[in-house]
């Protein structure tokens, strides 16, 4: 693609390096300001969960971070360089994006689709490892048994896993995943977020849009709560996920409990209370722990 100059291959990031940085990201669809100035840093070695109610701007934010949506007048930098100064091939070597839905126009097999993830690495030394990486990506997403199947013939959950395998095969240092668990069963949800954790432990930076707050609490190092186009909270799950904050953001009585045995955070709606104001009166806002 970029025959005019030599493609810059990525260097490994040290844990804690800022891999992705967004400053003042504004997105406007017509009259509606969907994102109203968002700043976000994502470091190598961490999983960042973007959560928030429907229409809060989570997917729009991910779109802006991935370059699908114009972030102007804000800036997005990847590995310290503005996205405008990378070629699309150079970005593909650094940033992998899993969209919410994956459609494939023609009956490509799952194997062909996963191998497309290796395309940015053509004519580099990494190309020699294609087979090993494809095998790893398909095993870790549990799609080995589907390799010979045609992608359009798969179920929604199978397509989601095959699409994730393609993004993993790309081996980017920065993974942007838009609701990767949306159409998955509970075992595969755990598996997919387990992969996100493993990638982070291997030194990658992972940003994942999630609806399930329990999954976010269990698997993310940082939870970023987006509401009304701004970041309303950003920090470790235990700090961010409080009854008061979640109840206010989602407009619904929510309580955060500790699992009696493991101590893991559990986020549940308070179905015994219909009126939000009443619930806030009845329960002290900061209460945590088992009832």
């Amino acid at each position: 693609m970029s025959w005019r100059r030599v493609t810059r291959l990525p260097d490994a990031s040290a844990p804690g390096d800022v891999v992705l940085s967004a400053r003042g990201v504004h997105v406007r669809f017509g009259q509606v300001e969907v994102l109203a100035g968002i700043d976000l840093d994502v470091r190598a070695g961490e999983v960042v969960a973007l959560v928030g109610p429907n229409g809060a701007g989570k997917s729009t934010l991910l779109g802006a971070l991935s370059g699908d949506i114009d972030a102007l007048p804000g800036t997005v930098t990847v590995n310290g360089t503005s996205v405008a100064d990378w070629t699309s091939l150079e970005l593909a070597l650094r940033r992998g994006v899993l969209p919410q839905r994956s459609d494939v126009s023609f009956p490509f097999t799952v194997e062909q689709v996963v191998r497309m993830g290796r395309e940015p690495w053509r004519n580099t030394e990494a190309e020699d490892a294609d087979d090993v990486i494809v095998a790893w990506a398909t095993e870790s997403t549990d799609v080995v048994a589907l390799m010979g199947r045609e992608f359009p013939s798969l179920s929604g959950g199978e397509q989601a896993r095959a699409a994730l395998a393609r993004v993993l095969a790309q081996q980017p240092g920065l993974l942007l995943l838009d609701e990767p668990t949306a159409s998955l069963d509970i075992a595969h949800q755990e598996q997919v977020l387990g992969i996100a954790r493993t990638r982070a432990e291997a030194g990658d930076a992972v940003v994942v849009v999630l609806h399930d707050l329990g999954l976010a609490a269990a698997h993310a190092d940082r939870v970023v709560v987006v509401s009304g186009g701004v970041v309303v909270a950003d920090g470790p799950p235990a700090d961010v996920m409080t009854d008061a904050l979640l109840s206010a953001v989602y407009g619904c009585a929510i309580e955060v409990l500790r699992h009696p045995r493991t101590g893991a955070l559990m986020v549940l709606p308070r179905r015994d209370i219909v009126d939000l104001a009443e619930s806030l009166e009845q329960r002290p806002l900061t209460t945590k722990g088992a009832p």
Binding site: M1, F106, E119
Partner: peptide, 22 residues
């Protein structure tokens, strides 16, 4: 080869380094 990647859709193709417009 690049048409193969375009079968994934315009944005995924771009995320794989294809200059879609060109």
């Amino acid at each position: 080869r690049r048409l193969d990647l375009l079968a994934l859709g315009e944005r995924p193709a771009r995320h794989l380094g294809v200059n879609v417009e060109r």
